[in-house]
Design a protein around this nucleic acid. Structure first.
Length: 295
RNA sequence: GGCUCAUUAGCUCAGUUGGUAGAGCAGCGGAUUGAAAAUCCGCGUGUCCUUGGUUCGAAUCCGAGAUGAGCCA
């Protein structure tokens, strides 16, 4: 069996971290983070990052290495992860990429389009505009892309417009030049999945645990300008609790709800990744490890 | 015990002069190539508490009952 990266995906609270540890132990592998928020130092509790003890079990990469105010994006992540994976392979070990951030993993597994990175100045400008205006401007510069995007998705329209403004070309051309991701083969990985009700209950419990473990203090210490990090589920809820506009129970419930909604989006994303084999999260650890090894 | 007010979707509530009902949240389905734990799209049949009545027609008006809240005893 040739050593190649193994992708361990799944929704939040599906048990990726513990399965990854078991798998690493079994195969002598090294764990590579595939989660957009576990890259930050200072967000360990809210992002459910592996604990220090867990990280001591085997080599871990790309966890907690970014400052809270350092913006991150999928392309930067994919570049970094690509290097780490190459290095692990060179040392004859097996990389186990663990995470639930669909876009980050997609960039890593399927490549990055030839497009410019985000420009904070342009973004600030576009953010201030109403969607209709962003759409109108994109329709002028790149009608094809404007038609392709959801006409009410400010983020997506702004990104397309941003590409046009920076390159002076068309976002739709870049899109066309990007290889069809479906051509990429030879990927191996699994998606841990649970019945809806059980996952919902796991989320309830983990949310309570997070708050008990110090998530509130963690959020209280976040810098105000840490824009990317402030998008994390739980930040606005905990801040509402801290300022007294929400009770602690409401806060906990709202976080659990947002987390369940997020899990649904993740499930959608991973379901479309046909190369991922679905594994029942409720199986015994040994059984799950065995199934992973068969992939 | 008496009076008043409430009772409509899982929850909080709208419902105009009677024409068999609709918002937010939740839930469900979906999109997604440099902010992605983000952002966005689609989905609303429910004994209108029950029961008698008035009416061509009742969530809506009248009577009785049930449950809850408040006030007076």
């Amino acid at each position: 069996m040739s050593q190649q990266p193994f992708y361990l995906c799944g929704t939040t609270a599906s048990g990726k971290t513990s399965l990854a540890l078991a798998l690493a132990r079994e195969t002598g592998g090294e764990i590579v983070n595939g989660d957009a928020f576990q890259v930050y130092r200072g967000l360990e509790i809210l992002s459910a990052a592996p604990t220090a003890e867990e990280q001591a079990c085997c080599p871990h990469h790309l966890f907690g290495f970014r400052d809270l105010d350092e913006p991150m994006d999928a392309a930067k992540y994919a570049a970094l992860a690509g290097e780490v994976i190459a290095d692990i392979l060179e040392r004859g070990k097996r990389p186990i990429v663990v995470g639930g951030s669909g876009l980050y993993l997609k960039f890593l597994t399927h490549g990055i389009a030839e497009a410019p990175g985000g420009d904070p100045v342009i973004r600030a400008e576009l953010d201030a505009l109403p969607v209709e205006e962003v759409l109108r401007r994109l329709q002028e510069l790149d009608p094809e892309e404007a038609a392709r995007q959801n006409q009410q998705n400010h983020r997506h329209l702004s990104r397309a417009l941003e590409i046009c403004l920076i390159t002076g070309g068309k976002a739709s051309d870049l899109r066309r030049n990007f290889e069809d991701p479906k051509k990429i083969t030879n990927l191996r990985g699994i998606a841990l999945s649970w019945p809806r009700e059980i996952l919902s209950e796991r989320i309830t419990q983990r949310t309570a645990q997070m708050l008990a473990d110090g998530a509130i203090e963690e959020v209280a210490g976040l810098p105000a300008d840490a824009q990317t990090v402030r998008q994390a589920i739980g930040v606005k809820e905990i801040e509402a609790f801290l300022t007294g506009s929400m009770t602690r129970d409401e806060c906990e419930e709202r976080i659990a709800i947002s987390t369940r909604q997020y899990a649904k989006r993740q499930r959608n994303w991973f379901r479309r990744e046909e190369w991922l084999k679905s594994i029942d999260g409720s199986l015994a650890t040994e059984a799950r490890v065995r199934l992973c090894l068969e992939v």
